[in-house]
Amino acid sequence: NQASVVANQLIPINTALTLVMMRSEVVTPVGIPADDIPRLVSMQVNRAVPLGTTLMPDMVKGYP
């Protein structure tokens, strides 16, 4: 099973992602692959992302 990117904390709308905000976890449904975490750094979320939420491609501005 492939690990996905999961919010490690509440991420407010328009926040630029940092490594501490994300963790990898095997979840269903599958979200953004954990391998993409380095690419996500400094990209902004377009909505508030609660703790434990799987990051989906449509939540991150400019992804992929």
Rank of each mutant, 00 (worst) to 15 (best):
N8C: 04
S24F: 06
Y63S: 06
G62R: 07
V49R: 02
Y63A: 05
I11N: 00
M56E: 07
A34K: 12
V30Y: 15
M21I: 03
L40V: 04
P64K: 04
T54N: 02
A7S: 11
L55S: 00
L10P: 13
P38K: 11
M59A: 07
A16V: 09
Y63R: 05
L51T: 10
V49T: 04
I13A: 15
N46A: 10
V49F: 02
P12R: 06
I32C: 03
A48I: 12
N8E: 08
R39Q: 14
P38Y: 10
N46S: 15
I32M: 04
Q44K: 14
S24W: 10
V27I: 05
V30C: 06
T53V: 14
T18N: 07
M21R: 00
Q44A: 14
I37P: 01
A16I: 12
L40T: 01
T18I: 07
K61N: 13
I37T: 07
K61E: 15
R23Q: 05
P57E: 09
V6L: 08
N14Y: 10
I11Y: 00
D35R: 07
V30R: 15
N46V: 12
M59Y: 08
A3M: 11
V6R: 03
V60N: 01
P64W: 06
R47P: 02
G31A: 03
T15Y: 08
E25N: 08
V45A: 04
S42V: 03
G62A: 08
S42K: 12
T53N: 08
M59Q: 04
V41D: 03
P12D: 11
A34F: 08
T28Q: 12
I37G: 04
N46F: 07
T18H: 06
R39C: 05
Q9I: 05
V5T: 08
A48K: 15
L10H: 10
P57D: 06
I32G: 01
T54K: 04
T18A: 07
L40Q: 00
R39E: 08
V27C: 04
V20K: 07
V60W: 01
A3E: 12
T53S: 14
A7V: 09
T28N: 13
T54I: 10
G62V: 05
R47T: 13
M21G: 03
L51C: 05
T53I: 07
E25W: 07
A3D: 06
T18P: 00
N14F: 07
A7E: 00
P12G: 07
